[in-house]
Nucleic acid binder design. Sequence first.
DNA 1: CCCTTGCTGTGAATGATTTCACGGTGTGAA
DNA 2: TTCACACCGTGAAATCATTCACAGCAAGGG
Lengths: 206, 206
Amino acid sequence: MSVHVSERSVRRLSLYRRFLLHAQASGSCYLFSHDIATATRTSAAQVRRDLMAISSSGTASRGYHVADLLKSISHFLDAPAPQHVALIGLGNLGRAVFAYFVGRHPNLRITLTFDIDPAKTCRLINGCPCHNIHELNDLCPTHGIRMAILTVPATEAQTVTDMLVRGGIRGIVNFAPVTLYVPVGVFVETMDFSISLETAAFFSRA
Amino acid sequence: MSVHVSERSVRRLSLYRRFLLHAQASGSCYLFSHDIATATRTSAAQVRRDLMAISSSGTASRGYHVADLLKSISHFLDAPAPQHVALIGLGNLGRAVFAYFVGRHPNLRITLTFDIDPAKTCRLINGCPCHNIHELNDLCPTHGIRMAILTVPATEAQTVTDMLVRGGIRGIVNFAPVTLYVPVGVFVETMDFSISLETAAFFSRA
DNA sequence: CCCTTGCTGTGAATGATTTCACGGTGTGAA
DNA sequence: TTCACACCGTGAAATCATTCACAGCAAGGG
Ligand SMILES: NC(=O)c1ccc[n+]([C@@H]2O[C@H](COP(=O)([O-])OP(=O)(O)OC[C@H]3O[C@@H](n4cnc5c(N)ncnc54)[C@H](O)[C@@H]3O)[C@@H](O)[C@H]2O)c1
Ligand SMILES: NC(=O)c1ccc[n+]([C@@H]2O[C@H](COP(=O)([O-])OP(=O)(O)OC[C@H]3O[C@@H](n4cnc5c(N)ncnc54)[C@H](O)[C@@H]3O)[C@@H](O)[C@H]2O)c1
């Protein structure tokens, strides 16, 4: 089944799924690889390769059956049960991200939040209690949490990351503009606004 | 000079620069390729290749001279004069991003902001007047703006993108979770929180 | 002064990813 | 029925990116 699917394929599959959900909502029942490709800025051959990797298949005449495809992709991407996510740092960005994700990902739920500021802990934020960061080591394992979103100041990011790793977290979405050092087996995805902006600035002149 | 530098190299160069600025601030005068590599999660050979591409060079005994290297990278990455950036959509995320970027990038300045909501236009936000989106077509060309940050609702993103392209924008940092259609020559960098989260979720289980 | 060491710069090799190209197939039109 | 068409699945080719490996060199030690 899953021989090996590259990180890039996983990202594209996630994009395909989002498009397929929209397409399904607007009534599409079948789609060709090139429809998916143009909607996700890639090529038809690429789409077919990616879908081949998760062994879904379409028919030559109609293309891919949207509902089936959605099932295949979700079966591949999603955990059998919803995954729970911790959010660390309830500042400007942390609160915006929290509000944004509520209800958006049925199978990814922010169930624990942490901060160090006593003004934020012991309060409900989006109906979710905010814990003190020092409880992280206890709470994450007992809640079976393996993923975290990190929105603390850059200076704190590595310290908190070390706590997360000790707490058993294996996937981190990091918003701080720093390189995080983690042991092998821990996946870090850094959302680096500055680097993206500079890259866009560069190519806006090319 | 610049034969061709790949997008990935540009991203890494931007990362190297950020690290070098930190290193310089903490007193480093010379650094080896492997120092830069470990600080940016890449390999020493990769660093040397990237620096070769912008024809900077180090010495075998001391490595790279930090100040010189910073000058080379900045000369390569930055426009001769500071670039001006437009920010479209002053909602939760737009305001957070604006506050975040103030003073952070000396050569990239958000000088125009736009919204469609009359409650936001005609007001100063971070000392910068917010214009009505319909003035975009006039104002961007007269201010020589070629880059935009897009933080409008997903439903509006394509419409606004079309306006931006008509207004002469050639680089867009897009925060809306949609694929933007742009003519060739326009660079789009989508910061896709959902895709990143799903990718991290996937690999946190692998 | 010469040897050792550990670095840079870079051609060549390797590895990863994308694209090409085509056989096989179901569909609709004549 | 038969043909033309357009698409899927996929091996092979091409392209792109990274790593290897080593010549050449500067510095420090004996
Ligand atoms: N605001 C933005 O638009 C933006 C954009 C890009 C990146 N970022 C990055 O995101 C991070 C957060 O930005 P922000 O604007 O929300 O900052 P912020 O200062 O508003 O929020 C940081 C939060 O982290 C908490 N915190 C501090 N140390 C902590 C610790 N050790 N453990 C737990 N919580 C701790 C603080 O109490 C605060 O609530 C920063 O690294 C920043 O560079 C922010
Ligand atoms: N808030 C988050 O943490 C977050 C995270 C990831 C992605 N996003 C994306 O960022 C975008 C903005 O999110 P938000 O939470 O700030 O939403 P928001 O509703 O708070 O802000 C949107 C802003 O855009 C303005 N706007 C609407 N239509 C416009 C138009 N045609 N022209 C100009 N301005 C217009 C609105 O007046 C409002 O000020 C959305 O696409 C969202 O999906 C947000």
